[in-house]
Amino acid sequence: MKVIDFFLMVCEQTFLFYPVVLSLYISYRLLKLTDLSADGVYVLGGAVFAKTLPFAGPLGATCIAGFFGILLGWIVALMQRGNHIRDLIVGILVTFMLYSVNFEVLGRPNYSLLGKLTLLKAGYFSQWIIGLAFINIILVAIVYLLCRSRYGLLMRAFGHNYDLLIKMGFPAERYRIIGLSMGSFLTAVTGALFAQINGFVDLNMGSGVALIAIGALMIGHHIFRTKNEVYHPGFDLLSAFIGIFTYFAILAFLMKFGVQPVHLKFFIGLILFASLRSSKGYSLGVVS
Protein backbone atom coordinates (compact mmCIF):
# COMPACT_ATOMS: atom_id res chain seq x y z
CA MET A 1 0.00 0.00 0.00
CA LYS A 2 1.33 3.39 -0.96
CA VAL A 3 1.88 6.00 1.77
CA ILE A 4 -0.77 8.25 0.27
CA ASP A 5 -3.33 5.42 0.24
CA PHE A 6 -2.47 4.59 3.83
CA PHE A 7 -2.85 8.26 4.78
CA LEU A 8 -6.20 8.54 2.98
CA MET A 9 -7.51 5.39 4.63
CA VAL A 10 -6.62 6.69 8.09
CA CYS A 11 -8.13 10.08 7.20
CA GLU A 12 -11.40 8.41 6.15
CA GLN A 13 -11.65 6.53 9.42
CA THR A 14 -10.72 9.66 11.37
CA PHE A 15 -13.40 11.75 9.65
CA LEU A 16 -15.92 8.99 10.25
CA PHE A 17 -15.21 8.95 13.99
CA TYR A 18 -14.14 12.49 14.89
CA PRO A 19 -17.70 13.73 15.71
CA VAL A 20 -17.91 11.06 18.45
CA VAL A 21 -14.63 12.39 19.88
CA LEU A 22 -16.19 15.87 19.80
CA SER A 23 -19.17 14.46 21.67
CA LEU A 24 -17.00 12.96 24.39
CA TYR A 25 -14.96 16.16 24.43
CA ILE A 26 -18.08 18.05 25.51
CA SER A 27 -19.11 15.55 28.19
CA TYR A 28 -15.68 14.42 29.41
CA ARG A 29 -13.61 17.55 28.99
CA LEU A 30 -16.06 20.41 29.47
CA LEU A 31 -18.64 18.95 31.84
CA LYS A 32 -16.22 16.43 33.41
CA LEU A 33 -18.87 13.72 33.11
CA THR A 34 -17.98 10.23 31.98
CA ASP A 35 -20.88 9.55 29.64
CA LEU A 36 -20.58 6.03 28.25
CA SER A 37 -24.08 6.12 26.74
CA ALA A 38 -22.35 6.96 23.42
CA ASP A 39 -22.07 3.18 22.78
CA GLY A 40 -25.86 2.85 22.63
CA VAL A 41 -26.60 6.24 21.06
CA TYR A 42 -24.20 5.47 18.19
CA VAL A 43 -26.24 2.37 17.27
CA LEU A 44 -29.50 4.25 17.80
CA GLY A 45 -28.36 6.89 15.28
CA GLY A 46 -27.66 4.18 12.71
CA ALA A 47 -30.88 2.32 13.46
CA VAL A 48 -33.11 5.40 13.24
CA PHE A 49 -31.37 6.38 10.00
CA ALA A 50 -31.93 2.93 8.49
CA LYS A 51 -35.63 2.84 9.38
CA THR A 52 -36.46 6.42 8.36
CA LEU A 53 -34.40 6.44 5.14
CA PRO A 54 -37.22 5.11 2.89
CA PHE A 55 -39.63 7.97 3.63
CA ALA A 56 -37.36 10.80 4.85
CA GLY A 57 -34.52 10.56 2.33
CA PRO A 58 -30.83 10.53 3.31
CA LEU A 59 -30.62 14.10 4.61
CA GLY A 60 -33.92 13.89 6.46
CA ALA A 61 -33.04 10.51 7.99
CA THR A 62 -29.68 11.85 9.23
CA CYS A 63 -31.47 14.82 10.80
CA ILE A 64 -34.04 12.54 12.46
CA ALA A 65 -31.18 10.39 13.83
CA GLY A 66 -29.61 13.57 15.22
CA PHE A 67 -32.94 14.55 16.79
CA PHE A 68 -33.17 11.17 18.55
CA GLY A 69 -29.61 11.75 19.77
CA ILE A 70 -30.67 15.07 21.32
CA LEU A 71 -33.62 13.31 22.97
CA LEU A 72 -31.35 10.62 24.42
CA GLY A 73 -28.87 13.22 25.70
CA TRP A 74 -31.72 15.01 27.42
CA ILE A 75 -32.89 11.73 29.03
CA VAL A 76 -29.34 10.94 30.22
CA ALA A 77 -29.07 14.47 31.69
CA LEU A 78 -32.37 13.99 33.54
CA MET A 79 -31.16 10.64 34.90
CA GLN A 80 -27.96 12.28 36.14
CA ARG A 81 -29.86 15.28 37.55
CA GLY A 82 -28.54 16.45 40.91
CA ASN A 83 -25.72 13.87 40.77
CA HIS A 84 -27.91 11.40 42.68
CA ILE A 85 -26.67 8.57 40.44
CA ARG A 86 -23.06 8.61 39.24
CA ASP A 87 -22.59 9.68 35.62
CA LEU A 88 -20.62 6.51 34.88
CA ILE A 89 -23.43 4.24 36.11
CA VAL A 90 -26.07 6.22 34.20
CA GLY A 91 -24.08 5.77 30.98
CA ILE A 92 -23.74 2.01 31.47
CA LEU A 93 -27.43 1.74 32.39
CA VAL A 94 -28.57 3.69 29.32
CA THR A 95 -26.39 1.62 26.99
CA PHE A 96 -27.78 -1.55 28.58
CA MET A 97 -31.36 -0.37 28.03
CA LEU A 98 -30.68 0.94 24.53
CA TYR A 99 -29.72 -2.54 23.37
CA SER A 100 -33.40 -3.55 23.59
CA VAL A 101 -34.60 -0.23 22.18
CA ASN A 102 -32.23 -0.49 19.22
CA PHE A 103 -33.40 -4.04 18.55
CA GLU A 104 -37.01 -2.86 18.53
CA VAL A 105 -36.14 -0.02 16.14
CA LEU A 106 -34.23 -2.27 13.76
CA GLY A 107 -36.50 -5.29 14.14
CA ARG A 108 -33.51 -7.63 13.78
CA PRO A 109 -29.85 -7.75 14.93
CA ASN A 110 -28.49 -6.27 11.72
CA TYR A 111 -29.88 -4.35 8.83
CA SER A 112 -28.41 -3.95 5.37
CA LEU A 113 -28.44 -0.64 3.55
CA LEU A 114 -26.55 -1.84 0.50
CA GLY A 115 -27.83 -0.37 -2.73
CA LYS A 116 -29.86 2.30 -0.94
CA LEU A 117 -29.38 5.97 -1.69
CA THR A 118 -27.46 7.65 1.14
CA LEU A 119 -26.40 11.19 1.96
CA LEU A 120 -22.86 10.64 0.73
CA LYS A 121 -23.93 8.87 -2.46
CA ALA A 122 -26.79 11.22 -3.32
CA GLY A 123 -24.74 13.39 -5.61
CA TYR A 124 -23.99 16.10 -3.07
CA PHE A 125 -20.28 15.26 -3.23
CA SER A 126 -18.10 13.69 -5.91
CA GLN A 127 -16.28 11.54 -3.35
CA TRP A 128 -17.64 10.60 0.05
CA ILE A 129 -14.42 11.48 1.86
CA ILE A 130 -14.89 15.09 0.74
CA GLY A 131 -18.47 14.96 2.00
CA LEU A 132 -17.29 13.57 5.34
CA ALA A 133 -14.59 16.24 5.64
CA PHE A 134 -17.20 18.90 4.90
CA ILE A 135 -19.58 17.51 7.57
CA ASN A 136 -16.65 17.36 10.04
CA ILE A 137 -15.79 21.00 9.39
CA ILE A 138 -19.39 22.06 10.04
CA LEU A 139 -19.61 20.01 13.25
CA VAL A 140 -16.24 21.14 14.62
CA ALA A 141 -17.20 24.77 13.88
CA ILE A 142 -20.43 24.31 15.87
CA VAL A 143 -18.54 22.77 18.80
CA TYR A 144 -15.88 25.51 18.64
CA LEU A 145 -18.55 28.23 18.73
CA LEU A 146 -20.24 26.46 21.65
CA CYS A 147 -16.95 26.35 23.56
CA ARG A 148 -16.36 30.07 22.92
CA SER A 149 -19.89 31.05 23.95
CA ARG A 150 -21.18 31.86 27.43
CA TYR A 151 -22.69 28.37 27.53
CA GLY A 152 -19.25 26.89 26.88
CA LEU A 153 -17.80 28.95 29.71
CA LEU A 154 -20.56 27.88 32.09
CA MET A 155 -20.26 24.24 31.03
CA ARG A 156 -16.58 24.35 31.96
CA ALA A 157 -17.55 26.00 35.25
CA PHE A 158 -20.03 23.13 35.74
CA GLY A 159 -17.20 20.65 35.24
CA HIS A 160 -14.79 22.42 37.56
CA ASN A 161 -17.13 23.19 40.44
CA TYR A 162 -20.75 22.07 40.18
CA ASP A 163 -21.55 23.01 43.79
CA LEU A 164 -20.25 26.55 43.42
CA LEU A 165 -22.27 27.06 40.25
CA ILE A 166 -25.42 26.01 42.14
CA LYS A 167 -24.48 28.20 45.11
CA MET A 168 -24.07 31.18 42.79
CA GLY A 169 -27.64 30.76 41.60
CA PHE A 170 -26.95 29.37 38.10
CA PRO A 171 -29.36 26.83 36.61
CA ALA A 172 -26.55 24.24 36.48
CA GLU A 173 -28.74 21.40 35.24
CA ARG A 174 -29.48 23.41 32.10
CA TYR A 175 -25.80 23.23 31.13
CA ARG A 176 -25.79 19.48 31.70
CA ILE A 177 -28.81 19.12 29.39
CA ILE A 178 -27.31 21.35 26.68
CA GLY A 179 -23.92 19.61 26.81
CA LEU A 180 -25.16 16.03 26.86
CA SER A 181 -27.82 16.69 24.21
CA MET A 182 -25.25 18.28 21.94
CA GLY A 183 -22.87 15.37 22.56
CA SER A 184 -25.52 12.73 21.88
CA PHE A 185 -26.56 14.60 18.72
CA LEU A 186 -23.00 14.31 17.42
CA THR A 187 -22.80 10.62 18.33
CA ALA A 188 -26.15 9.75 16.72
CA VAL A 189 -25.23 11.63 13.53
CA THR A 190 -21.93 9.72 13.43
CA GLY A 191 -23.82 6.44 13.84
CA ALA A 192 -26.00 7.45 10.88
CA LEU A 193 -22.93 8.35 8.80
CA PHE A 194 -21.28 5.04 9.67
CA ALA A 195 -24.39 3.17 8.52
CA GLN A 196 -24.42 5.04 5.21
CA ILE A 197 -20.80 4.47 4.42
CA ASN A 198 -20.54 0.86 5.52
CA GLY A 199 -23.98 -0.09 4.22
CA PHE A 200 -25.24 -1.81 7.35
CA VAL A 201 -26.36 -1.29 10.93
CA ASP A 202 -25.46 -3.85 13.56
CA LEU A 203 -26.64 -3.97 17.17
CA ASN A 204 -23.04 -4.38 18.37
CA MET A 205 -21.40 -1.74 16.21
CA GLY A 206 -21.28 0.76 19.10
CA SER A 207 -19.28 -1.46 21.42
CA GLY A 208 -16.31 0.48 22.84
CA VAL A 209 -17.09 3.70 20.96
CA ALA A 210 -17.05 5.90 24.10
CA LEU A 211 -13.85 4.30 25.34
CA ILE A 212 -12.09 4.84 22.01
CA ALA A 213 -13.20 8.49 21.97
CA ILE A 214 -11.93 9.07 25.52
CA GLY A 215 -8.70 7.26 24.58
CA ALA A 216 -8.34 9.54 21.55
CA LEU A 217 -8.74 12.60 23.80
CA MET A 218 -5.99 11.18 26.03
CA ILE A 219 -3.65 10.43 23.14
CA GLY A 220 -4.21 13.91 21.70
CA HIS A 221 -3.64 15.52 25.07
CA HIS A 222 -0.49 13.45 25.55
CA ILE A 223 0.94 14.45 22.17
CA PHE A 224 -0.07 18.10 22.51
CA ARG A 225 0.70 18.52 26.20
CA THR A 226 1.80 22.06 27.12
CA LYS A 227 2.69 23.84 30.31
CA ASN A 228 0.17 26.53 29.53
CA GLU A 229 -2.92 25.86 31.64
CA VAL A 230 -5.07 28.50 29.94
CA TYR A 231 -7.96 26.99 28.00
CA HIS A 232 -7.90 27.26 24.20
CA PRO A 233 -10.79 25.39 22.50
CA GLY A 234 -9.16 25.51 19.04
CA PHE A 235 -6.02 23.90 20.42
CA ASP A 236 -8.07 21.29 22.29
CA LEU A 237 -10.19 20.37 19.26
CA LEU A 238 -7.07 20.06 17.11
CA SER A 239 -5.43 17.87 19.74
CA ALA A 240 -8.57 15.66 19.78
CA PHE A 241 -8.28 15.30 15.98
CA ILE A 242 -4.60 14.39 16.23
CA GLY A 243 -5.54 11.88 18.95
CA ILE A 244 -8.10 10.00 16.88
CA PHE A 245 -5.89 10.18 13.77
CA THR A 246 -3.01 8.64 15.74
CA TYR A 247 -5.31 5.95 17.09
CA PHE A 248 -6.44 4.86 13.62
CA ALA A 249 -2.88 5.11 12.28
CA ILE A 250 -1.67 2.71 15.01
CA LEU A 251 -4.62 0.43 14.25
CA ALA A 252 -3.77 0.41 10.53
CA PHE A 253 -0.10 -0.36 11.32
CA LEU A 254 -1.12 -3.26 13.55
CA MET A 255 -3.26 -4.73 10.79
CA LYS A 256 -0.54 -4.12 8.23
CA PHE A 257 1.87 -6.08 10.40
CA GLY A 258 -0.46 -9.05 10.43
CA VAL A 259 -2.30 -8.71 13.74
CA GLN A 260 -5.52 -10.71 13.44
CA PRO A 261 -8.74 -8.66 13.69
CA VAL A 262 -9.83 -10.86 16.60
CA HIS A 263 -6.70 -9.81 18.54
CA LEU A 264 -7.08 -6.14 17.79
CA LYS A 265 -9.16 -5.33 20.87
CA PHE A 266 -6.34 -6.54 23.10
CA PHE A 267 -3.81 -4.27 21.42
CA ILE A 268 -6.25 -1.36 21.29
CA GLY A 269 -6.80 -1.88 25.01
CA LEU A 270 -3.06 -1.70 25.60
CA ILE A 271 -2.81 1.55 23.61
CA LEU A 272 -5.70 3.09 25.55
CA PHE A 273 -4.28 1.92 28.85
CA ALA A 274 -0.91 3.49 27.99
CA SER A 275 -2.54 6.79 27.03
CA LEU A 276 -4.75 6.81 30.14
CA ARG A 277 -1.77 6.06 32.31
CA SER A 278 0.42 8.73 30.77
CA SER A 279 -2.27 11.43 31.07
CA LYS A 280 -3.14 10.66 34.66
CA GLY A 281 -4.10 14.21 35.66
CA TYR A 282 -6.30 14.67 32.62
CA SER A 283 -8.12 11.39 33.07
CA LEU A 284 -8.94 12.28 36.65
CA GLY A 285 -10.19 15.66 35.54
CA VAL A 286 -7.44 17.37 37.54
CA VAL A 287 -5.70 19.10 34.69
CA SER A 288 -7.62 21.96 33.18
Binding site: A157, H160, D163, L164
Partner: peptide, 21 residues
Protein backbone atom coordinates in the same frame (compact mmCIF):
# COMPACT_ATOMS: atom_id res chain seq x y z
CA UNK B 1 -11.29 29.65 48.37
CA UNK B 2 -11.79 26.65 46.10
CA UNK B 3 -15.42 26.79 47.29
CA UNK B 4 -15.75 30.37 46.10
CA UNK B 5 -13.66 30.53 42.90
CA UNK B 6 -13.23 28.35 39.83
CA UNK B 7 -9.62 27.38 40.44
CA UNK B 8 -8.65 25.84 37.08
CA UNK B 9 -10.00 28.87 35.18
CA UNK B 10 -8.38 32.25 34.60
CA UNK B 11 -9.11 35.44 36.54
CA UNK B 12 -10.90 36.88 33.50
CA UNK B 13 -13.09 33.79 33.14
CA UNK B 14 -13.98 33.93 36.84
CA UNK B 15 -15.02 37.56 36.44
CA UNK B 16 -17.07 36.68 33.34
CA UNK B 17 -18.90 33.94 35.25
CA UNK B 18 -19.70 36.26 38.16
CA UNK B 19 -20.97 38.89 35.72
CA UNK B 20 -23.07 36.24 33.94
CA UNK B 21 -25.06 35.58 37.09
Amino acid sequence: MDQCLFFPMTVKENIEIWVER
